[in-house]
Nucleic acid binder design. Structure first.
Lengths: 168, 168
DNA sequence: ATAAACTTTCAATATATTTTGAAAGTTTAA
DNA sequence: TTAAACTTTCAAAATATATTGAAAGTTTAT
């Protein structure tokens, strides 16, 4: 396989994976493109490369910046803005974990915490089942939350090292 | 807060979380409903409770069964099919991990493995960047894969115990 | 065999999400 | 200023995803 075809495959695969995990396909594709491109690209470059509109490219890039995955670069003597992606995989994983934790896990944890406090007749099966399920899910969500917190602080080698101690 | 309102909130929260993670909102809601309901429900019960059509209920329940989260129950002397959810949170997490690994992680791993093998001029920055990114992402994906494998085999207490040793 | 009870299918429809593109906005240089 | 170079916005259009509901299919009891 030649490089251009390989790039294409990577962009497609990344886009598909993203869309399966609730991330806009185009956003994942722009990210993928920047990941396999050595130099920073302009909006125009990205539009051409992925055949998307200016508006789409602009919004997607802003989104990627809000996720902390892409940054702007200014080149001396140029008006155009260039964009590049952090290519450190561990940073990417941490950044995604950080954002999804903040955007999706924390809100749901807040609700679970409330629901855990709902009072009821402990003889009532409806209440008992509700309470048990919510309490258990809350515990697991908290465990996930703590694990992510650890991951956010950790160095890659230390983190995977600890994970692999689990195999022993 | 009273139980019915609390149930409603749980169903909404679960549905929202699901949809943010690429799982059909209705599917997550049906699952949530079954999680907080002590007894098995009929298609009809679910249709009424969530105000969804028969077709939707039927397909969603089949989906949930294919995910291994819901099972059919037959009551003696009744023609109707009843559905109930496994309420063990650790089982749920494992089941979801198992399915997403099979459906989404494995295919992408296969592609990454291929792309890792693409040859090129090691002086060419385009090639170098592509190769480094793909290789690194492949490594991380393999780590995730192995971790999930461990999780699938593990008992809950052992798994979280191992995770929390990481804090020490 | 018949019919009632129940489940499944899927084309049509509705809804949600994404994308477009041109106009409006901004910045810079002269 | 002015105008060229560039970025942002957002209503409209396109696309993708989810839902409906009635017809077709299946099972069971008689």
């Amino acid at each position: 396989m030649e490089l251009p075809e390989a790039k294409q495959k990577f962009i497609e695969a990344w886009g598909k994976l993203g869309s399966e995990w609730g991330i806009n396909r185009t956003m994942a594709q722009v990210h993928a493109l920047l990941l396999v491109t050595p130099d920073a690209l302009t909006t125009e470059d990205i539009m051409e490369n992925l055949s998307i509109s200016r508006g789409n490219a602009n919004m997607t890039l802003r989104d990627l910046m809000s996720w902390g995955l892409v940054e702007k670069q200014h080149k001396a003597g140029e008006r155009k803005e260039y964009f590049f992606a952090d290519k450190n995989t561990w940073n990417i994983a941490r950044q995604v974990a950080k954002e999804r934790r903040k955007r999706e896990l924390e809100p749901v944890l807040k609700i679970l915490e409330e629901l855990t406090k709902v009072q009821g007749d402990s003889k009532d099966p409806a209440y008992k089942t509700f309470n048990t399920s919510v309490t258990d899910i809350n515990k697991m969500a908290k465990n996930v939350d703590k694990t992510l917190e650890t991951m956010l602080k950790a160095e890659e080698s230390w983190f995977w090292g600890s994970i692999f101690k689990m195999f022993k």
